[in-house]
């Protein structure tokens, strides 16, 4: 009989407690964002699509050698005996692990992984897999229009964040004030 009653009471009590927790979370701000419209800033060193600075590249092929999945296809042509020029530099993103090893082995620091931050495109989403074999010689990072868009989005985000922070700070200040007043009241009460 005791267990019976305890079960009834326990289930009611824990249900109410759980509902309190969900209620608390109901009043918290959302953590998700509307993705394509609103962008989450990516950190420095984000691993995205590669960019190659052909001016300083010394054609050492180390990046292709270290690649664990052999996704870099490169072929260089000899021009005037000494100089080389890239004929093919493709990276197959069907295979790429985004492991960052090619960037690290580069002795001249000429290959990078681009953030593509805020380019408002679903960067690698495609319905045709063949498009994922990108010609890195063609791809020079963000286009000018994209860069402008990125700056705009960033500014907007920063503005929103600042407004939010301001509102939160004001709210907090008000809450603190209330709290301190409450405490004061309580102190007064206890004093009496």
């Amino acid at each position: 009989m005791f267990t019976y009653m305890r079960n009834v009471v326990d289930s009611l009590r824990t249900t109410v407690k759980g509902m309190q927790v969900t209620w608390k979370n109901l009043r918290r701000p959302e953590t998700t964002v509307e993705y394509p419209e609103q962008l989450v800033p990516l950190p420095e060193g984000y691993r995205g699509i590669h960019t190659l600075d052909t001016d300083i590249c010394i054609y050492c092929f180390q990046c292709a050698k270290i690649c664990p999945v052999d996704c870099i296809e490169m072929r260089a042509e000899r021009v005037e005996k000494k100089f080389l020029s890239w004929e093919v530099f493709n990276i197959d993103y069907n295979k790429c692990l985004f492991c960052d090893l090619c960037i690290e082995v580069c002795p001249k620091d000429c290959i990078h992984m681009d953030k593509r931050d805020g380019s408002a495109k679903f960067a690698l989403i495609t319905d045709d897999r063949s498009t994922l074999n990108l010609d890195i010689l063609e791809y020079k990072g963000l286009s000018e229009a994209d860069k402008v868009a990125v700056v705009k989005v960033r500014e907007e985000n920063a503005k929103k964040a600042a407004e939010k922070a301001k509102a939160a700070a004001e709210k907090k200040a008000a809450a603190d004030k209330d709290e301190s007043e409450d405490k004061k009241d309580k102190a007064d009460d206890s004093g009496k």
């Binding site: 969900t22 979370n25 109901l26 918290r28 701000p29 959302e30 953590t31 998700t32 964002v33 509307e34």
Partner: peptide, 12 residues
Amino acid sequence: SADFQSRLGPMY
């Protein structure tokens, strides 16, 4: 449910 779970839910 979205509100309870800190999500936005349908917005579009």
